[in-house]
């Protein structure tokens, strides 16, 4: 079991790296635009997991100060604040890309990247 110990010690960082690579593979390999947006979301959660795992401290408590108990060990509050900002930014990216997807579906009748590229090339040939 000793070879598993380093993996268990770094499990959150490893999970973050694997989720990031899975999200990147989803964005690159798929031609469906909504699948690409899901991939961007998965990449985002991978990065968030990395930050929050950095902020965690062994046997710490959430940073809510109780005056009756002065000697508590708190976790690092700064990554939590950054990630609260990051979640809202990812939602903004998702909403804007979804509006572009709806517009493309209205114009070309498809949400597949290669089909749209082919139709655009045909339009350019006609002109």
């Amino acid at each position: 079991m000793t070879f598993l110990q380093p993996i268990i010690d770094h499990i959150n960082y490893l999970g973050a790296a694997i989720l990031f690579v899975i999200g990147l593979a989803t964005v690159v390999n798929h031609t469906n635009l909504i699948k690409k947006i899901l991939g961007i979301n998965i990449m985002g959660t991978g990065v968030f997991l990395f930050f929050i795992a950095i902020g965690n401290v062994t046997s710490g408590v959430p940073p809510i100060i109780d005056p009756d108990q002065p000697d508590q060990l708190f976790i690092n509050p700064l990554p939590s604040v950054f990630i609260l900002t990051g979640i809202v930014v990812v939602v903004s990216i998702t909403v804007y890309s979804l509006s572009l997807v709806i517009r493309m579906h209205e114009t070309y009748g498809s949400i597949d990247q290669e089909e749209i590229a082919r139709m655009m090339a045909e339009e350019a040939d006609h002109d």
């Binding site: 010690d9 790296a17 401290v57």
Partner: peptide
């Protein structure tokens, strides 16, 4: 993708495993 994952994992294995108050992020 496997190369990217390998680079990330090699870097992660060099990070401190259990974070204490002495960690650089604290």
């Amino acid at each position: 993708f496997a190369g990217l994952l390998g680079v990330l994992v090699i870097n992660i294995m060099n990070m401190p495993a259990i974070l204490s108050v002495d960690a650089p992020s604290y």
